[in-house]
Design a protein around this nucleic acid. Sequence first.
DNA 1: ACACAAGGCTAAAACGCTTGACCTTGCTGT
DNA 2: ACAGCAAGGTCAAGCGTTTTAGCCTTGTGT
Lengths: 344, 344
Amino acid sequence: MKKRPTINDIAAECGVSLSTVSLVLNNNPRISEKTRLKVLAAVEKYQYQPNTQARALASRSSRSLSVIVPQLNHVFADIYFGEIVSGIYDAACEAEYKVMLDIANDKFVSSQEYINLMKSRRADAMLFIASSISDDYLKVFETARYPFLLVNHFFPDSSLNYITLDYEDSAMQASDHLVNLGHRVIGVIAGTNTYTGLQFRDTFIDHCVGKGLKRKDITAVDGGRDWSQEDGYRAAEQLLAAHPKITAIMAGNDRMAVGAMSYVHSRKLKVPGDVSVIGVDDIPTARFSNPPLTTIQHPLYELGRLACEQVLAMFRNDIERYQEVVPVKLVIRESTGPVNKDRL
Amino acid sequence: MKKRPTINDIAAECGVSLSTVSLVLNNNPRISEKTRLKVLAAVEKYQYQPNTQARALASRSSRSLSVIVPQLNHVFADIYFGEIVSGIYDAACEAEYKVMLDIANDKFVSSQEYINLMKSRRADAMLFIASSISDDYLKVFETARYPFLLVNHFFPDSSLNYITLDYEDSAMQASDHLVNLGHRVIGVIAGTNTYTGLQFRDTFIDHCVGKGLKRKDITAVDGGRDWSQEDGYRAAEQLLAAHPKITAIMAGNDRMAVGAMSYVHSRKLKVPGDVSVIGVDDIPTARFSNPPLTTIQHPLYELGRLACEQVLAMFRNDIERYQEVVPVKLVIRESTGPVNKDRL
DNA sequence: ACACAAGGCTAAAACGCTTGACCTTGCTGT
DNA sequence: ACAGCAAGGTCAAGCGTTTTAGCCTTGTGT
């Protein structure tokens, strides 16, 4: 008796047909309570677990969804993606789905894995997290009708489904905060490999100008592709080299903000005494940086949950199109303060 | 012509049997080059992708492996796990495997998902990352012969397969470093929910005593279950309250070390001027903390890679048992320094 | 007594692939 | 001339479910 039990063994044990067992397992109301209990008892006795593959083959659903993240350095160690994935996982779990991981690396793209995942029925649906501006290949999903959703990204003038945080509002809230503290010469470290990043940068600059700042007093540098501490460090260096009078740095995410603070400290300058620094995301470390970081709180976990629920709804054909923008809010801590008059 | 092409369509197009197509797709050498090319051309023409579920059903392999992490707060955002998962992912990718994520939460345990995953053939193999000391249920794998591997954890006196970093050596290297700097009153923040954590703590203390320190001058407090910055902050608070003369803090991981530094700063004490702090792991942020953190470098990414390769070998029956300990090394940065005589 | 509708269950056709056994054909060596 | 064999294919039996049409009982109204 080494072999695993199958639905046939259960059926035989109960003296019913295998269809009956299948119906019981799928909670079909057409089976009487008596039969149901008999079957469930046998299932318990044999410790029977239906074969997932057979089930998937017959039912045309793998009960798996694919989560695709960009190819950054050790991306699964990235807090930003981690929060989103956590949200996705929890929602998937509730729907009894498994989460499969993928990285949009060269192989993934060149082998067209993004479409093969669907063709081979390996996944029921796909979630692309914060893909890059250059990911044109995703446009196949404008016409190919697969359950597909961009998370925290979008392509302008495209009909691709997306759910994203309100980067425009983030930019405006951050701008208001710094300008109200008296800052007039500001450096911006922006990620430029996503449309949301660009939107954030441009909105920030425009909004500052709208509040009376001179455009030439706002310097933007590229944060690099990783949005990492290292990138923030280097960008801050560039910024202070180009404009020594900068009194505030706006970083496109918290990690770059922490890197920027690190550079400011290395120059023997104080945060926020000499230079205020503000980030975006409100990752857990933001509270524990030195000093604690002022930032725009982005509900990444909730974003992930919602994304998962929606993309599964697409698979069930409950919805076809979905484009949503999620609100954000400012969290004031100790890395921003009134402008230091001596530095003006 | 809305339906997806199947292997039959390809066979018909080429005028060969479906077995031939299957053999070509599986690179079976029995098929002539001529036929192979003909088949591949048809595959290309139809953009054919074999159905994963059918394949898995017939071949008895899902080509997926399950990675199970403990239920910590937003665990996928955790750098420690992230590094390991990155390693696993890359190795899985090379073997053409997909990685499925799971969290060992109450539901996972009570529904026996850990064993059902195998029974239902959803996964070919399982990797448990840093499970907790209380995860007794894993002992079923001592007798149930499934491809199973504990990553960075082990159970004493158990035959369970594992691969872990050398926490004993970590403890000894850290101890040597601090004692050589002249520290004689040391606080230890240890995670106590893993055997590796306990082993680390106990080895550290014994080794210090072995080097001549008094046992009563070494205070150990529990770092809590999350091994987080918050835990480190609180633990440091406890430590300095209990023993104000502590001149060095050994934290069981870098995140707790960063939290501990944060508390030390909040007390207006200098790191390392007043209190040296050393961590474990060497996560990327360690270089960017203020001051940069001295730590024991743990090759988490490589650990993940190796774990994945080994567990897949188990599935292929290449190996049966596997227990391995991976070496580590000290990285000296700026958070540790000679003891401050004034504080003795 | 009979048509008819539920209710409860079953038969059997998918689902789309893998794989070991078997069949052909053309060569070898003797 | 022929057994023996390798190369290249094909056959068909699975793999373990889901699902729909339909079959057999009962119970109900007339």
